[in-house]
Structure formats: structure tokens, C-alpha cells
Design a binder for these strands. Structure first.
Lengths: 112, 112
DNA sequence: TTCATATGTGGCAATATGGCCACATAGATT
DNA sequence: AATCTATGTGGCCATATTGCCACATATGAA
């Protein structure tokens, strides 16, 4: 098992940043909403029902990570998903969640 | 834009937990190592060079998230990747990183 | 200009996370 | 039994993250 070098470490950090950006329920819900096409901040805001400043900061994190990009039009700012493959990979995440809950269920039954 | 209900919120939380588990460079490096087959903690430990207690806790987080599972054999505990599709989806994450760095490069050139 | 709307930013307090130390435990070896 | 090895846990502290408030900015409307 080789020891990890500096290049590997940097690479892992960059990828982890993207995953971390997706690793928050509010941000994830917004990303899923954006899968249906671009949305303005106001729409995302009413979708998740949090303070607008909170939404704004979450969007900044997603943008910084390269997951979304934005476009200004009049008063509104529209965000869109920058990397389409993300939605496919969320399907994989779902399968992790499902296999985990299956195991939990089995464990509960086992204890029952 | 519909408002998100409780079920959606729980689902987003569960998926975010998985992504958050992957959203740390050390954990990501270990997951990538496990893509090559199961490894004992001692191997992962020398791979990432951190205190063994730190490794142990990171592995517990991955296990809790359902990303890995473990198997004890004598003194050693072997971890393996529970959900193979994760490696495919890391390819997508890489593409996010790459398109981001391309944009950064373009921005730097634009300023130059 | 004055006001309203949409969005972003600074700051602060609460909470979560990460890493290291010391210690605990389980299994192997002598 | 005494000891060693591999792994896990509890505790502590430093740092990061979150969420809300207040305020700032930009654009459009009156």
C-alpha cells in the first residue's frame, strides 16, 4: 500500500470540496431543484424556506465548488447546474441510503 | 416551485449524510484505496499517515454513512466499499474539479 | 429622487467537526 | 499470565460551519 503523495493529497482535497458542498440538505435540495432547469434565488428561497441570507451563502458555496453558475437578469439572479453528471451520481447516493436503511431494518428485525 | 415537505427534507438529510461522509480528503483517499479491494485498518493507516485514532474515527463515519462495511479477522479489521457505483460517481466529481480549474485559468488569463 | 424588491455581506453565537492524547479492549504470542 | 499488536473510544481543544440579524448594494418603479 503506497503512501499518498502531495499531488494525491491536493487532488483529494479538491474533490472533497465538491462533495462537501453537496453534503448539506439545503444545498442538496437546491441542486435537485436546479436539475429541472435554472431558477432564480427567490424561487429557491421559497422552496426551502430559510432566511434569504442563508440561501445566498449556500449558493455561494455551491458556486465556489463549481457545481452551479449564475446569471444576472434585472433584479434577479438565476442559478443553474454546471455539471449535469451530478444528478446521475445522486442516484448512486440514493442507493447507498437505501441499502443502509435495508440493513438497519434487518438489524432491527434481528433484535426483535 | 413547490415547497419542500418533511419527507423531502428527511431524504435530503440522508443523502447529504452520505455526501458529507465523502467530503473529507482523508476519507476520500481511503475510499479510493478501497476501490482496489478490501484493506485492513493498518494498511489504510500507513497510506494516509495520521494518528490511528483519527483513521478509526473516519472509518466509523464512512461505515455509519453506509459507504463501507467491515469484517474482523484475527487482530485485523478489513474494510470494503459497500456501494461500487461510488467510484463511478467520483469521476463526475473530478469533472467538476477540472471544469472549475479551467474556468479559474481562463479568469486568470482574462485578467492578465 | 424616493421607495420597493432581489440579492449579497459582515458579524456573532451556537453547534459540529477534526485531530491528537491517553486509555480500553480483543486477539495473538511467549 | 504477561505482553504485544491492531483497533476502537473518551476527552479536550482548536477550528469550521450554520443560521439569523442587521446592513449594504443594485435595479426597477413611482
Amino acid at each position: 500500500m503506497k503512501v499518498i503523495n502531495e499531488r494525491d493529497r491536493v487532488s483529494a482535497q479538491l474533490k472533497a470540496d465538491v462533495l462537501k458542498a453537496l453534503g448539506h440538505p439545503t444545498r442538496l435540495m437546491m441542486v435537485e431543484a436546479l436539475a429541472g432547469g435554472e431558477r432564480c434565488v427567490c424561487e429557491l428561497n421559497e422552496l426551502v424556506e430559510a432566511d434569504h441570507s442563508t440561501i445566498s451563502k449556500h449558493l455561494a458555496i455551491l458556486k465556489q465548488a463549481g457545481v452551479v453558475s449564475d446569471r444576472k437578469e434585472g433584479l434577479k439572479v438565476f442559478y443553474r447546474l454546471e455539471v449535469p453528471c451530478i444528478m446521475r451520481f445522486l442516484g448512486c447516493v440514493t442507493s447507498v441510503v437505501e441499502s443502509r436503511s435495508t440493513r438497519h431494518l434487518a438489524a432491527v428485525k434481528g433484535r426483535g
